[in-house]
Every structure is written in C-alpha cells, then in structure tokens.
C-alpha cells in the first residue's frame, strides 16, 4: 500500500490502527475486492452438446454441487462469465460457438471440457467434426477425459477462480484506456 503511514500518527501502520479502532473492518485494494466478488460468482453458460453435457448436469447436481462455490448455470450468454464447452463441436455448430462467445460480456473465460472439445477426441477421423474449439475461440483451461468427471470440472472452475483472483482488473483497464 502506498500511504502506509498517516500524518499525525507516527510509526504505526494503518492496519493496526484500523484493527484497534474498528475490528470488523478489512482493508484491501479495490482490485482484490472486485476479484473476490467476481471469483465467487462464476456463472457458467449451459452449453452442453454431447456426452460431457451429462457430466456438466451432474456437476450442477446434488453431489458435486457447483452452487457451493458460487457457480450456477445460465441459459443465456449475456449473463454468463464462463463458457464451458462440453462436447463435440461439428463444423455446422462451430459458427454458433463463435457467435455465443462473442455475445458474452467481458471479462469472459472458456473451459474446454473433454477430449472432443480439446482436439476432436475419438472423432479425429470424422469428416464433420471440428478438431479443437481453440481453432474458433480462445480457451483458458482444457480438461482431459472422455468425459471428465464432475470433480475434474470443479477443479477447472476453481482454476478459473484462481485466475480471476490474480487479475489486476482496474489497472489493466486504465492502462488500456491510457494507451
């Protein structure tokens, strides 16, 4: 923190003063505060195309319970922060994937779930399957498996949370605006 010492109170860190005066007050940066809020409300777009979609359902179901880390499904891309591409994407579908991604509001994250979304998986030899969604949209995390277990997907969302917590969101925006 830049202003560690306040005028008139010599050599006492501001945190100690705050702790002494108002024990229920937490001091933090605005970035950390925003990221804290964002990381515990990662709402994902319900985008289930194939087998992985069932594990995605069970990810939101009672055992894995994505709700406990603040993730709930949204049916529309406008309200979602995270796009979990669960399942095979064919060429016929690929343009829709791109469109849905573009409809999401910034900042947005993408998890590629399962072998098909990662690279085509068992359908590598198919004439109609897109071999990896990273050819169409940028991907943050890849989850291996055919299909991955819901626990693996939960870990993926936790990784997204970690990524969000590290971001300097406000400062990045300022520098972008300045430059």
């Amino acid at each position: 923190m830049a202003g560690r010492y306040k005028e008139g109170v010599e050599n006492i860190p501001i945190e100690q003063i705050a702790d002494a005066l108002f024990p229920e007050v937490i001091l933090t940066t605005v970035d950390d505060f925003l990221n804290w809020g964002r990381s515990w409300s990662v709402w994902y777009l319900l985008f289930a195309t194939a087998c992985c979609g069932i594990e995605l359902m069970q990810f939101g179901g009672p055992r894995t319970d994505a709700d406990r880390i603040g993730s709930v499904f949204r049916a529309t891309p406008r309200q979602a922060d995270l796009m979990i591409v669960a399942g095979t994407i064919t060429y016929k579908m690929a343009s829709r994937v791109k469109l849905l991604y573009e409809q999401m509001a910034e900042p947005k994250y993408v998890i590629s779930m399962g072998a098909c979304a990662n690279c085509g998986g068992p359908f590598w030899y198919s004439y109609s399957v897109l071999r990896g969604i990273d050819k169409v949209i940028p991907v943050d995390f890849y989850i291996a498996g055919c299909p991955p277990r819901p626990e693996a997907l939960l870990q993926g969302v936790i990784e997204v949370q970690k990524k969000i917590k590290k971001e300097k969101y406000l400062r990045a925006k300022k520098s972008e605006a300045g430059g």
Binding site: T49, A50, G87, T88, T90, K92, M93, R96, F123, Y125, S126, Y127, S128, V129
Partner: peptide, 13 residues
C-alpha cells in the same frame, strides 16, 4: 445435424 459426427464413416476404417 449439429452433432453429426460421422460415426458410420469412421467405422469403415
């Protein structure tokens, strides 16, 4: 056909 994965063709090989 949004999930047509061509399993019938893959099977031939």
């Amino acid at each position: 056909g949004f999930l047509h994965r061509g399993i019938e063709k893959i099977a031939e090989r």
